[in-house]
Simulated scan of single mutants.
Amino acid sequence: MMLMVDMGNSSLKWAFFDKGKLSPLERIPYQSNNLKNLLTQAWLRCNIPPRSVWVSNVAGPQKAELLTQWITTHWGLKPIFIKTTHYECGVKNGYENPAQLGVDRWLALIGAHHLEKGMLCVIDCGTAVTLDILSASGHHQGGLIIPGITTMRDVLLDDTYALAHLNKILPQGNDKQFLAHDTRTGISQGALYAVIGLVKYVVNTLEKQGNKIKLILTGGSASAIKSFLQTHQHVPDLVLQGLVVIASQSL
C-alpha cells in the first residue's frame, strides 16, 4: 500500500493506492500552524502504515518539512517528493525552463495522458486556475494561469472597503441566475464567468485550427464550472493519478 499526497496552497489531498486502485480522495484545509495536528487526526487511524509516501508539493518548504517530520516520526519513512522534469512517463514538458512548471500541473498532465487519448485541455481549478494543452503524442503545448474563482472573489471582498462587510459565498455553478441583482452575487458570478470564458476561448481557438479537444477538469472548484461546459471529464484526483503513474513506473 502506497500513500499519494497532493499538498496544495490551501488544502491537503490524499488517497491510498493498493492492489491497483486508489481509495476515495480525502481533503483537509490547513495552515502551517495546524498541519501536524490535522495529519495526526487524519492518518493515525490507518490500521496499516503505507510502505511508501509519494508527494506533490506546491505549498513551500515549511509545509514540506512538517509533513516529512510527521511521516518520519510516525511511520519511519522518508516521503518521496516529485520534481518537474523535461520528460516523464510519455509526457514532454513544454516550458523552456521545465522546473518552472508547477509539479501539480506536471502530474496532472501525466495523469491525464494515461487516462485519455487525443489532444487534451487540462484545467485545474484551485487557488489559481491553470489551463494546459497536451497533444495526443504527449507534448505539452503550453498553458495559462489566472486567479481562481475564490481568489478573485476574495480579493475584491477583502481589499475593497465598501464590500468588506459582505458574506463570502462560493458560487455553485447555478446558471438559473444569469445576471446578479446584488453585489455579492455579482462578484461571485463575475469570477465564475471569467474562468468559463477563458476555457471556452482557448478551446474555440484551438478547434478553429482543426483540433478536437477533450476537457479534463480537476481541483476543488471544478464543480462550480462543470455544468457550464458541454463535454468534459471530471477527475478530482488527477494529480494523485499522476503520482500513481510515476510511482508504478519506479517499482
Results as ranks from 00 to 15, higher is better:
V103H: 01
P50L: 05
A42C: 14
N9S: 05
L3Q: 07
C125Y: 05
T151Q: 12
C121W: 13
Q241T: 14
P29V: 07
A15K: 04
T151L: 07
G220F: 00
S221F: 08
G90S: 07
T68W: 01
G142H: 01
Y193G: 04
D18N: 15
Q69D: 11
M7L: 12
L170M: 14
C89I: 08
R153I: 07
T40K: 13
H181Y: 06
I80A: 07
N47K: 07
H74F: 03
G76E: 01
L25S: 04
L217I: 04
L35M: 02
D18L: 07
L134A: 07
F17G: 07
A112G: 04
S223W: 10
L179A: 10
S223C: 14
I216G: 02
G111E: 00
Q69K: 05
N93T: 00
K83W: 02
K92T: 12
A59T: 02
L67E: 04
L77A: 00
P171E: 08
S250V: 10
L22P: 04
L215Q: 09
A136S: 13
G197T: 06
V53F: 06
I123K: 10
P49M: 01
L131T: 11
K176S: 11
M1D: 13
S250W: 13
Q230L: 08
I146C: 10
A180F: 03
A222P: 09
V235Q: 05
A222S: 10
V235N: 02
L163V: 06
W106A: 02
L66S: 03
A64H: 06
Q172W: 15
K21E: 13
L217H: 12
I82T: 01
L120I: 03
A136Q: 13
L25P: 01
D132V: 06
V245Y: 15
S56T: 14
T151A: 06
A64R: 03
W43R: 12
L25N: 12
Y161R: 15
I246P: 01
G143E: 02
Q233W: 09
S10P: 03
D132Y: 05
K83E: 08
P171Q: 04
L179V: 12
I246E: 08
K226M: 12
T40G: 14
F17T: 09
E96D: 12
L66P: 02
I133H: 14
Q241W: 06
A162L: 14
L38I: 11
N47G: 05
L217D: 04
A42S: 13
L120C: 09
G190W: 06
K214I: 13
N204K: 15
W43I: 05
F228M: 11
C125M: 14
G242T: 01
L134V: 09
E26R: 15
S52C: 03
S250P: 01
Y30A: 00
K214L: 07
R153M: 08
P29F: 15
Q249D: 15
G102H: 08
M7K: 01
H113P: 03
L206I: 09
K13H: 07
R45E: 13
E65T: 12
S137A: 12
G118D: 15
